Simulated assay, not measured.
Amino acid sequence: MTDLSFRGVLPALVTPFRNGRVDEAAFVALVERQIDGGVHGLVPVGTTGETATLSHEEHRRVVELCVQTARGRVPVIAGAGSNSTEEAIELVRHAKAIGADAALVVTPYYNRPNQEGHYAHFAAINDAVQLPVFVYNVPSRTSTDISNETLARLAKLPNIIGIKDATGDLTRASFQRLMCGEDWIMLSGDDPTALGYMAHGGHGCISVTANVAPEQCSAFYDAALSGDWAGALQAQDRLITLHKALFSDSSPAPTKYALAHLGLCTDEVRLPLVAASEASRREVLQAMKDAGVA
């Protein structure tokens, strides 16, 4: 049966900065806020964590801080992707060494491998490190898409245990569930369609919105996991404008603005990203009110 220790809402954590450096104190406080808000897991140094502009030293340090702060209270899935297979293996090895519970590995971006290349990339990681790995499929960012047929092959490998599916394509979820088997863990990577994804058999979501509204997102996933679809729909209706607003400008700038408005960190992002526009800020503030975020 599916290992449901990886289920529910797992925030794709922002990496807070102050004066160009990682703000470690703010990061620790954000992790504690998430756990207090009832989230089911944590995902440091993913896309929302601006991993593309972190140095290798910063990347490793943020994962270590997350694991140390979580102290086993919730699982940690460490971002560990690269378009270099060798580098991805090294990042997964580091995640295992410092005690992360799993790794999140994005499909190789820019290189645009074919399906056999995708399989070989993840198979090499599977063979190199004994740590559970989630495949992260986000074609809008990587310009490549891993097929359900390739995922079905990967699902037979012992360390490739599931997917973060940020395609927003709900039809592929049902086919994937049938093709990959009951042990395959299905996590959405798209907040707005996560209700449908859960109804198609998904187990949870690696969420951007949870950064801002951990309690509200946790309540949504608790309802969905318990089969309270009416309650989940009601929660979705409160959150949907926030889901949209947090992508009203280049992510994670709107999310960092929301957190700065709450006094939790600065809204600083690293170039080539810039701070959220005034129009985006207005949209975020209204959406926070709609969602009941103080």
Score class of each variant (00 low, 15 high):
3 D>V: 08
6 F>I: 14
14 V>G: 04
18 R>T: 13
18 R>L: 15
18 R>I: 11
23 D>V: 02
25 A>K: 15
29 A>T: 10
29 A>C: 06
34 Q>L: 02
35 I>W: 08
36 D>K: 15
38 G>W: 06
39 V>Y: 00
42 L>S: 03
45 V>A: 13
48 T>N: 13
48 T>K: 03
49 G>E: 11
51 T>D: 02
53 T>G: 05
56 H>Q: 11
57 E>P: 02
61 R>F: 05
64 E>G: 05
65 L>A: 02
67 V>Y: 12
69 T>G: 07
72 G>I: 00
72 G>V: 00
73 R>E: 00
77 I>C: 07
78 A>H: 04
84 S>M: 05
86 E>M: 05
89 I>W: 07
91 L>W: 11
91 L>I: 04
101 D>V: 06
111 N>E: 03
111 N>M: 04
113 P>L: 01
113 P>S: 08
117 G>H: 09
124 A>R: 15
124 A>W: 01
131 L>W: 09
139 P>Q: 07
141 R>I: 04
142 T>I: 05
142 T>R: 01
144 T>H: 07
144 T>I: 04
146 I>M: 11
146 I>Q: 05
149 E>S: 13
149 E>H: 13
150 T>E: 10
150 T>M: 08
155 A>L: 03
157 L>Y: 05
158 P>R: 12
160 I>R: 01
160 I>T: 11
160 I>M: 04
162 G>W: 07
162 G>T: 02
164 K>I: 01
165 D>F: 01
166 A>S: 14
166 A>V: 03
169 D>M: 04
169 D>C: 10
169 D>P: 01
171 T>W: 04
172 R>L: 03
172 R>C: 12
173 A>S: 14
173 A>R: 03
174 S>C: 01
176 Q>D: 00
179 M>Q: 14
182 E>Y: 10
184 W>P: 12
189 G>V: 00
194 A>P: 00
195 L>T: 09
196 G>Y: 06
198 M>P: 00
199 A>E: 14
205 C>R: 02
206 I>T: 04
207 S>H: 11
212 V>H: 03
217 C>Q: 11
219 A>H: 05
224 A>V: 08
225 L>C: 11
228 D>H: 12
229 W>F: 15
231 G>V: 10
233 L>P: 00
233 L>Y: 10
235 A>N: 12
235 A>L: 11
239 L>C: 09
241 T>E: 06
247 F>P: 00
247 F>K: 00
248 S>P: 06
250 S>L: 12
255 T>N: 01
257 Y>K: 13
259 L>W: 13
260 A>H: 08
261 H>L: 14
262 L>M: 13
265 C>D: 02
267 D>A: 11
268 E>G: 04
268 E>K: 11
270 R>T: 08
273 L>D: 10
275 A>D: 14
277 S>K: 02
277 S>H: 01
283 E>A: 12
283 E>K: 15
287 A>F: 14
289 K>T: 14
291 A>T: 04
292 G>P: 11
